[in-house]
């Protein structure tokens, strides 16, 4: 999971993932979304590919990148353990707020 979190730790790479969540794109199309030169975009795509978050479909010269959401499952499972913690705290806060309101309305 370290390599996935590392890949997600860069805003440009998150922009790339967001774009790919709407459909496949070429490196040129992705470069148009980012304020960096294409060789920089290629480097980011390499990091994402190494983390298994994108794959590339090849047809002669044509290259198109796709999102691979599978590695995010592991991140989601890891986060879900903490989700129950904050959810129970938020529920407690909600209860407290409701109780306070009831008291002040008397």
């Amino acid at each position: 999971m370290d390599v996935v979190l590392q890949a997600l730790s860069d805003p440009s790479r998150r922009t790339v993932l967001e774009a790919l969540s709407e459909g496949p794109a070429t490196v040129g199309e992705l470069a148009a979304l980012l304020p960096i030169a294409r060789p920089g975009v290629s480097r980011h795509l390499r990091v994402l590919r190494d983390a298994g978050l994108v794959d590339v479909r090849k047809d002669a010269q044509f290259r198109v990148y796709n999102l691979r959401p599978e590695p995010l499952v592991e991140v989601d499972e890891w986060l879900s353990r903490y989700r129950s913690l904050w959810e129970s705290r938020l529920n407690a806060l909600q209860t407290e707020i409701t109780r306070g309101k009831r008291r002040s309305s008397k």
Binding site: V27, G28, A31, P39, Q61
Partner: peptide, 22 residues
């Protein structure tokens, strides 16, 4: 293509073509 690197004879570079090939 976007080309980045050493473009002298013997030099190496990276290229990203409009086709997406890089």
């Amino acid at each position: 293509a976007d080309v980045d690197g050493d473009l002298r004879v013997g030099g190496t570079f990276r290229a990203t073509f409009t086709s997406g090939w890089e």
